[in-house]
């Protein structure tokens, strides 16, 4: 009987998290265009609904009904499969993210986390690295030289920044001594937020995060001015939209991870434990806004500069961070 309750509970949690994340992804596109618009002294979308609020829905309907074009020389199976990979990967990251204090619903202790596993952090990194295949294969399979160039750039960039990202997180792991994300949050609630102990790692992590999810100033794989959009150049209709949904879902997943690792997860004053997830949502929202802000502020880096920054600056700095964390812990 306990097993049946567990299945029902998990199914409900999966549905709720999936629905909230997809809605947030849809409205991230609206936020991005609105905020970018205001940064560039424009209005942004303002035709569909009040303040253009129905724009994402209109976009979705449009993407669904557009004609599907598959290039004749494309590798058909891989071409169709590619957009689904990053979306599935970035959505499954949310399965280990804890977003609130344990609550009691109908006399049952319900953890506000789909799967509270010991390998949480490793799972996030594994899923993030699997998601890269979608971009690489999408660019390769569409039989287009711009697509292939974008895919190669994406592969090289994400592999190199993943190293720096992993080493940066080591500082947190040394402090907390656990890979369980809920446990990391709990330690921050009892002590201080890890951003106070690891401010350097926090900044490094944010930089690597932008590179990992291919956002400006590191959006070389889809540089419009030289690659005509890069890996998704041959994609149309819903497949094109799926690449974008994956990008925003990955952005939200990365923001959630930063919140959990550095900003104390659901920790915050005033709210009762049952509403602690509100703080989590607020922090993720602020980080997502920060990502849009950065996009509106910085120009794109040149490709060789991106690789140089990753290998020659960020990785040594991340190693130095590990070294000094270790020294402080020993002394």
């Amino acid at each position: 009987m306990e097993f049946v309750y567990f299945l029902i509970e998990t199914a409900i949690k999966v549905i709720v998290v999936f629905a909230v994340v997809m809605l947030a992804v849809a409205y991230m596109t609206w936020v991005e265009r609105k905020v970018l618009g205001h940064i560039q002294v424009r209005y942004g979308p303002n035709r569909v609904g009040p303040y253009g609020l129905l724009q994402p829905i209109a976009d979705g309907i449009k993407a669904f009904f557009k004609e599907e074009v598959i290039p004749e020389k494309a590798d058909k199976v891989v071409y169709v499969m590619a957009p689904a990979i990053p979306l599935v990967a970035s959505l499954s990251i949310f399965s280990v993210i804890p977003f609130g204090e344990t609550v009691r619903i109908l006399g049952r202790e319900v953890k506000l986390c789909i799967a509270d596993v010991d390998i949480g952090l490793l799972f996030v990194f594994a899923m993030a690295s699997l998601g890269e295949y979608g971009i690489v294969l999408g660019g390769w399979s569409s039989y287009n030289k711009y697509g292939l160039m974008g895919a190669l750039r994406a592969a090289a960039q994400m592999v190199s920044y993943e190293i720096a990202l992993g080493i940066t997180v080591l500082g947190i792991l040394m402090l907390s001594g656990t890979l369980n994300l809920s446990e990391i949050v709990r330690q921050q609630i009892e002590g201080h937020w890890f951003v106070l102990y690891q401010p350097f790692a926090f900044i490094l992590f944010l930089i690597c995060m932008f590179a990992e999810i291919n956002r400006t100033p590191f959006d070389m794989p889809e540089a419009e001015s030289e690659l005509a959009c890069g890996y998704n150049i041959e994609y149309s209709s819903m497949k094109f939209a799926m690449f974008f949904m994956a990008e925003y879902a990955h952005l939200l997943a990365a923001s959630s991870l930063v919140t959990v690792l550095f900003l104390g997860g659901w920790d915050g004053p005033w709210l009762p434990p049952g509403l602690s997830w509100v703080w989590f949502v607020v922090k993720v929202g602020l980080l997502a806004f920060f990502a849009v802000w950065v996009r509106g502020t910085y120009p794109r880096l040149r490709y060789d500069q991106i690789m140089k920054l990753g290998w020659k600056i960020l990785i040594p700095l991340a190693l130095a961070n590990v070294l000094f964390t270790g020294l402080f812990m020993v002394v």
Binding site: F125, A126, S129, E132, Y133, V136, A155, V159
Partner: peptide, 10 residues
């Protein structure tokens, strides 16, 4: 699956 195969495909 993540790192080594990515390098091979690359």
């Amino acid at each position: 699956a993540g790192a080594i195969m990515m390098l091979i495909i690359f």
